[in-house]
Structure formats: structure tokens, C-alpha cells
Design a protein around this nucleic acid. Sequence first.
DNA 1: AGATCTACCTGGTTGC
DNA 2: TGCAACCAGGTAGATC
Length: 275
Amino acid sequence: MPELPEVETIACGLRPEVAGRIITSAQVHWPGSVRPSPERFTAVVTGRRIEQVRRRAKLLLLDLGPLNGDSGRIMAFHLKMTGRLYLPDEPDVHKHSRIVFTLDSGRQLHFEDVRKFGYCRLFHPDEIEHWDFWASLGPEPLEIDEARFVSLFEGRNARIKSLLLNQAVIAGIGNIYADESLFRAGIRPETPASKIPRRKLARLHGEVQAVLSESIRECGSSIRDYRDARGNAGAFQNSFRVYGRGGEACVTCGRTLEVAKVAGRTSVFCRKCQK
DNA sequence: AGATCTACCTGGTTGC
DNA sequence: TGCAACCAGGTAGATC
């Protein structure tokens, strides 16, 4: 389930292989994975140079250069839960390959997605700002300072975990890093943000940044589907303190970690260490 | 404003 | 072994 660190890892892995390369062909194997239509999608991207590989929130962006004097395009991938973007060693079409790009280097770039929740959308550079999802995205958690971070939550009655997961409040955090950050900050996921003292929100700012940075350093977390651009697993799952550990002992106090649904998501926390 | 539910999907796991 | 039920989770959209 690619969140910010996983998408960042994929972007870094992809960059040296695809930046500067020209897309010589694109095949769409599942129409629902692309917008606009597969015919249009293929026609628009073919022949363009991939100029940059970027990330914004959980979106992986490929900036495509102009063709025949037009404005260039942005390809925005959302991997959702099971999406993968990678360069297989051998050209091939796998069972869940939804889009296969062939590059002028001879290598292929695959967008695989078992559950078909992910997508790739095409935009004109000045058009992406009008995309509702893009326009609604909150700040990047690694670029925001403490005061601004705290101000995102102050006076809000929603539960803190719900706000952390809300991409319009802060962008890029999903279930894993929400639970891990809240554990480290000593805050229970169901706590209304307005009830959390300022100093604890300040601490949460530090812990969110620490968890995300550590995970990026470890090339992300691999649970089931996630792999980086070269097909390798990340290692941060070995550092999980609460996610996926319901019923096990808290690493800090030994108490049994509890599981609850908060904001509709499975949430794991320690009743003793998180208040 | 915010919570809750459903839909979108498939594959792995669990339980009988 | 077979098969059904359940779970994972990001986002949109509807409803209260």
C-alpha cells in the first residue's frame, strides 16, 4: 500500500532509468486504468520524452515533453493499494500489467495493479491545477514547519487519525504511517484533535517527519504487494511498532496492543503508551 | 463539520 | 480438498 515513502522510493528508483527517455509505445491492457480513453492515451504519450520524475502526496508524476510544438503533458499515477510501477529485467506482459510503456532504451516500464484501483491520468501542465483531487491536497508533511503543522489540527473536532489520513489536511500519509506516528507521539488515534495539547501536536510533527524519513531511508515498507522500481522490497516493515501488530506486546511497555476501527480503518495502539 | 456506509477490486487467509 | 466468508485499504460519493 504505497504511501509517501513508497512513492518517493519508486520515484527515486525510476528516475535514472526513465528520465530523458522517449516513450516509443504504450499498450493499455485495462481501459479503466487510464484516462482519457486508451486510444487517446496511447496516441498522446507515444513519442514524448520523459523529462522529470516527481512525487506529490501519493502521486507519482512523469513530466512529458512537448511534441509537435504543443504544451507537454503530465502523467499522474495513483497506485492506491496494489499499484506498482517498475522496470522488469525481461520485457514481458504479466498477468496484472495494466499499462506497458516501451522506452527508447529498449526497457519497459510496467504499471501493474492487481485490484485495479490505481490509475494513470493525463493532464496539460496548466490543467492539473483544476483537477479536484490535486487542488484539494494539503501540504507535504516533510516540508511543513512545526507551527504550520500544529495549525492544521488546532480547533478541529475530528479525530486526529482521521485528519492525518485526510489528504486535504496533510498529503501523503496512509494507515501505516498514521498509526506509527501516533504511537511514537503517544497519542491515541481516536482523540479529537482539539483535545490534544499544543506541545503534543508539536511532538507529532517531529514523529511524522521522523517516521517518513526513516522509511524513505529504508526504501519504504513492503507488505504484500509493494515493490520499488526495480522490483525490490523495502525494509521499513521491520521497524513497525504497531501497524499489523495487534495482539502482540508493545515494544515500549509490553502491554498487549489493541485493535480498533478509527475513521473506518484498522488501527493499532497501546492503551498505556498512548493517551 | 464530521462520521459512517458503500462502491470499486482481487487474492490471500481463515474457518468449517 | 473445497468453498464461502472475510479482510486489506485510498478515494469518491451519498446520507445523516
